[in-house]
Design a protein around this nucleic acid. Structure first.
Lengths: 145, 145
DNA sequence: ATAATACAATTAGAAACCTAATTATTAGAT
DNA sequence: ATCTAATAATTAGGTTTCTAATTGTATTAT
């Protein structure tokens, strides 16, 4: 089991997550918030559904996490007249500052995780993980019909 | 962000998990239970702390998940006289049956995930993920001191 | 134009997970 | 031998996550 793909992916992902949280303890961010902050850096103004998909969590989950982030003043949610059933999410200045810290931490951990890897190896790894991603996406989509 | 290691690991892990849960819906297992069942197949009689470490969850979490599994009759927990502060966990016959189903599903998904991969590619992937694992373990251990 | 359908977000309720503090047991030090 | 440290499990309290059902808004069909 220790050598199975599932186990390795789980271990790597969770160690990454644990390391991230340790590195941003001083920010007061709770575990669900960093990935959303990170997504918004590159997709400011996204609607909730989009964020949920990108972060691989359900729309119902996003609702509560974003509420917490809004209360902390990290984001604001706007209702545009052109589409009143969607909520558009924007980083505040405070949110941007914390997001930068998260970004930095992401980069640090990634570097640590890949220490000893050559550029060619990094590229191969990325390609492999992307292929798996596509294989799995197809599988899950198929099951939903 | 879509191309970062963290994102790819997260996506692959969560798609794997989602696919697994879809494939064992009929078993009535809740999301936290399959990985423990799987671990016990190869480590029957493990103590709770060991299971927690292997499954990358905290001892406090194991307590409640194992309670649920015990109530469902999937496991029993025994107190041995030689060490009365540890609890030794064993699969019941019912637990073994469900574990087999979980195993089968793990294998199916792994095959789907790696479709198109040659044996040499699979081996390289495993090596890479294991190296990342070791890099991260070192990092997390270091932070704890 | 109105009715049916689809869609985005939310609420409700439950499971999984965490950290910090507690209890019970074991091991180690003097 | 007793006192202190460490260890395994648990409890308490909170966050994240899920599914299913609901609300409000937009689209589509007749």
């Amino acid at each position: 089991m220790k050598e199975s793909l599932h186990y390795l992916l789980m271990a790597d992902h969770l160690l990454f997550q644990k390391s991230l949280l340790a590195g941003i303890k001083d920010t007061g961010l709770t575990p669900g918030q960093p990935k959303i902050l990170d997504y918004l850096v590159f997709h400011d103004g996204a609607v909730q559904k989009e964020i949920a998909e990108a972060c691989h969590i359900e729309p119902a989950t996003i609702t509560s996490v974003l509420l917490g982030m809004e209360n902390k003043g990290l984001i604001i949610r706007k209702n545009l007249n052109s589409n009143r059933r969607s909520l558009y999410v924007y980083l505040t200045d405070k949110g941007k500052l914390l997001a930068e810290q998260v970004e930095m931490q992401f980069r640090d951990i990634e570097e640590k995780a890949l220490s000893g890897f050559g550029d060619d190896e990094k590229e191969i790894l990325t390609i492999f993980l992307t292929r798996i991603n596509q294989n799995m996406k197809g599988a899950v989509d198929h099951e939903q019909n």
